[in-house]
Deep mutational scan, measured.
Amino acid sequence: RNRTTFTSYQLEELEKVFQKTHYPDVYAREQLAMRTDLTEARVQVWFQNRRAKWRK
Rank of each mutant, 00 (worst) to 15 (best):
Arg1Ser: 15
Arg1Val: 14
Asn2Lys: 05
Asn2Asp: 11
Asn2Gln: 12
Asn2Ile: 12
Arg3Lys: 13
Thr4Arg: 01
Thr4Leu: 11
Thr5Asn: 14
Thr5Arg: 06
Phe6Ala: 06
Phe6Cys: 06
Phe6Gln: 06
Phe6Pro: 04
Phe6Val: 11
Thr7Pro: 04
Thr7Leu: 06
Thr7Phe: 06
Thr7Asp: 05
Thr7Gln: 05
Thr7Arg: 04
Thr7Gly: 05
Ser8Lys: 14
Ser8Trp: 05
Ser8Gln: 15
Ser8Val: 11
Ser8Glu: 15
Tyr9Asp: 08
Tyr9Arg: 12
Gln10Tyr: 00
Gln10Cys: 03
Gln10His: 03
Gln10Ser: 02
Leu11Gln: 14
Leu11Gly: 05
Leu11Val: 13
Leu11Pro: 01
Leu11Ile: 07
Glu12Ala: 11
Glu12Asp: 09
Glu12Val: 03
Glu12Arg: 06
Glu12His: 13
Glu12Met: 03
Glu13Cys: 05
Glu13Trp: 04
Leu14Asn: 02
Leu14Lys: 00
Leu14Gly: 00
Leu14Ala: 02
Glu15Gly: 01
Glu15His: 02
Glu15Lys: 01
Glu15Gln: 04
Lys16Ala: 10
Lys16Tyr: 03
Lys16Gly: 08
Val17Trp: 06
Val17His: 08
Val17Lys: 05
Phe18Ala: 00
Phe18Gly: 00
Phe18Tyr: 08
Gln19Asp: 15
Gln19Trp: 07
Gln19Thr: 13
Gln19Met: 09
Gln19Pro: 00
Gln19His: 11
Lys20Asp: 10
Lys20Thr: 12
Lys20Glu: 15
Thr21Met: 05
Thr21Tyr: 09
Thr21Asn: 14
Thr21Glu: 13
Thr21Pro: 00
Thr21Ile: 07
His22Trp: 09
His22Lys: 12
His22Gln: 11
His22Asp: 04
His22Phe: 03
His22Cys: 08
Tyr23Leu: 03
Tyr23Arg: 05
Tyr23Thr: 09
Tyr23Gln: 04
Pro24Glu: 00
Asp25Asn: 04
Asp25Ile: 00
Val26Ser: 13
Val26Thr: 08
Tyr27Glu: 14
Tyr27Gln: 10
Tyr27Gly: 12
Tyr27Asp: 14
Tyr27Cys: 13
Tyr27Asn: 12
Ala28Met: 12
Ala28Lys: 04
Ala28Ser: 11
Arg29Thr: 14
Arg29Pro: 00
Arg29His: 05
Arg29Val: 14
Arg29Gln: 07
Arg29Phe: 07
Glu30His: 15
Glu30Ser: 10
Glu30Gly: 05
Gln31Ser: 11
Gln31Met: 09
Gln31Glu: 10
Gln31Gly: 09
Gln31Ile: 06
Leu32Asp: 01
Leu32Val: 11
Leu32Cys: 05
Leu32Ala: 03
Ala33Ile: 11
Ala33Cys: 09
Ala33Phe: 02
Ala33Gly: 10
Met34Thr: 10
Met34Cys: 13
Met34Gln: 13
Met34Glu: 12
Met34Trp: 11
Met34Val: 14
Arg35His: 15
Arg35Thr: 01
Arg35Gln: 05
Arg35Ser: 13
Thr36Glu: 01
Thr36Leu: 13
Asp37Ile: 04
Asp37Trp: 05
Asp37Arg: 14
Asp37Met: 10
Asp37Leu: 06
Thr39Trp: 02
Thr39Met: 04
Thr39Gly: 05
Glu40Lys: 09
Glu40Arg: 08
Glu40Pro: 11
Ala41Ser: 12
Ala41Tyr: 09
Ala41Glu: 14
Arg42Lys: 08
Arg42Ala: 14
Arg42Phe: 10
Val43Gly: 01
Val43Trp: 01
Val43Thr: 03
Val43Ser: 00
Val43Gln: 02
Gln44Tyr: 08
Gln44Trp: 04
Gln44Val: 11
Gln44Glu: 15
Val45Leu: 14
Val45Ser: 13
Val45Trp: 11
Trp46Ala: 00
Phe47Gly: 01
Phe47Trp: 02
Phe47Leu: 05
Phe47Pro: 02
Phe47His: 01
Phe47Ile: 02
Gln48Ala: 14
Gln48Ile: 04
Gln48Cys: 11
Gln48Glu: 13
Asn49Lys: 09
Asn49Gly: 10
Asn49Tyr: 09
Asn49Gln: 10
Asn49Phe: 05
Asn49Cys: 10
Arg50His: 04
Arg51Asn: 06
Arg51Val: 05
Arg51Pro: 04
Arg51Gly: 02
Ala52Val: 11
Ala52Phe: 03
Ala52Trp: 05
Lys53Asn: 13
Lys53Trp: 08
Lys53Gln: 10
Lys53Tyr: 08
Lys53His: 14
Lys53Ile: 08
Lys53Met: 10
Trp54Thr: 09
Trp54Phe: 11
Trp54Leu: 14
Arg55Met: 06
Arg55Glu: 11
Arg55Gln: 09
Arg55Gly: 13
Lys56Trp: 10
Lys56His: 08
